[in-house]
Design a protein around this nucleic acid. Structure first.
Lengths: 230, 230
DNA sequence: GCAAAAGTGTTTAACATACACCCATGG
DNA sequence: CCATGGGTGTATGTTAAACACTTTTGC
């Protein structure tokens, strides 16, 4: 991270921005969306979260949607968002005083268009635990987002916001294991998640996988609800 | 709550403020600190949370301390604070675009000076579940603060921030009952809280209460830590 | 001696955890 | 027929919840 220096603020008042840590599950990994940050002399070809200023006539949530669309090429279909934290360290942006309201955002991989899935010169998906240095205080935001994601996974159905419409019990077990970073016992996990009644069984199986076909499920409710999971 | 109207913003950019929902426990009630809000023509002799603008050279936390001191006459001795949520509804302040970062703040009653305890023309303590209409969107902030307080009480030692240095098991049981709004079983509560090892017994009792003297305890750690309480 | 609050144990049900083998399919 | 991942049950320990009487003090 470039060193930030105490300096005369460029702006008389604090400016308000948003940042979004957007995650998705794909190919047995947790991915986060990064965009290129090129702000010489402070950041040259660095990467950070999509975000930007809040307009006078929009809420913070509105601003996140707008910037995700413009900078990260992510439309808001099936996007789940919750506010994470307002980051207000005086020197968090070397250009001046910018307070940022950070959001945790989730989307199923399958809900993304081809353009959204693919990397571009100015936007890409990277593994969420890839410990690269990000622009501004975005490493701090990333840590907060991963911590929140993990704790919400254990107490809500938040993972429903990253799962495809249909999935097997093994797939959702892997999703939990990725997010809470802990191996789970297959039999105990299945007993527990089925007893919670948050999944609805589909009357079909996924065949053609050179192994025994797995039963398919979907989340019973499209909403994120509190549970006592894990 | 005064009706807010869509109107031309007075400011070109969003202005950043903080608000603090400050609670304390006293006399078997949960109290919240309110200050007088007099902003004609929008609010005349209304009440709301202490708060105000963030200066360019201070963090949001700094601003909360400053405004609590100036407006609510609360110094920061033994003040516990955690960020609640940034409220960004476009019309939340009828005077113009103001985004507010709200904080949940707690203090023990005993840590307050006489001036801080007493009501004044511009500041007073009111029962937290007193359903009066507050200025701005402060009823919404109050609801969020009470919900957060209750859920944090069940999963952390956050109530230590409102307890006196020494207290009886009955007193802390009443604190939990007030905050989570649920009656607890005396025997089960004592077994559980003692097994958690978050309390340290003092070698004295509280006598002179025209009943059997009660053993005194303090919190073993001054920090708020995660537990599996209640 | 009586009013008031402190203190104390047991039983039952639910849940968490640990653990290993057979099954259905594709190649 | 074999490699792959799907699917299943039991035993044990821990925790949650329900429940009532005796003790110690001040007045």
């Amino acid at each position: 991270m470039p060193k930030t220096r105490k300096q005369k603020p460029l702006l008389r008042f604090a400016v308000l921005a948003v940042d979004a840590a957007l995650f998705t599950l794909h190919d047995k990994q947790l991915w986060v969306r990064l965009i290129r940050v090129h702000r010489p002399p402070y950041f040259r070809n660095a990467w950070g979260f999509p975000g930007g200023l809040i307009h006078p006539d929009e809420t913070a949530e509105d601003a996140v949607h707008r910037h995700l669309n413009a900078k990260a090429h992510i439309a808001e279909s099936k996007l789940y968002m919750e506010q994470l934290h307002a980051f207000s360290a005086v020197d968090r942006d070397p250009r001046g005083r910018v307070v940022s309201v950070a959001y945790l955002a989730l989307t199923p991989w399958d809900a993304l268009s081809r353009r959204e899935k693919n990397d571009a010169p100015d936007a890409r998906w990277v593994p969420a635990d890839d410990t690269q240095t990000l622009a501004y205080d975005h490493n701090e935001i990333l840590t907060a987002a991963l911590t929140r994601l993990s704790s919400r996974a254990a107490s809500t159905t938040i993972l429903s916001a990253m799962m495809p419409d249909e999935f097997t019990l093994t797939e959702i077990e892997h999703a939990y294991e990725l997010v809470v970073k802990k191996d789970l016992d297959k039999r105990n996990f299945r007993k527990k998640i089925l007893k919670l009644k948050i999944l609805a069984p589909l009357s079909k199986k996924r065949a053609g996988e050179r192994a025994r076909p797995a039963a398919l499920y979907r989340f019973a409710s499209p909403r994120v609800v509190e549970i006592n999971a894990l």
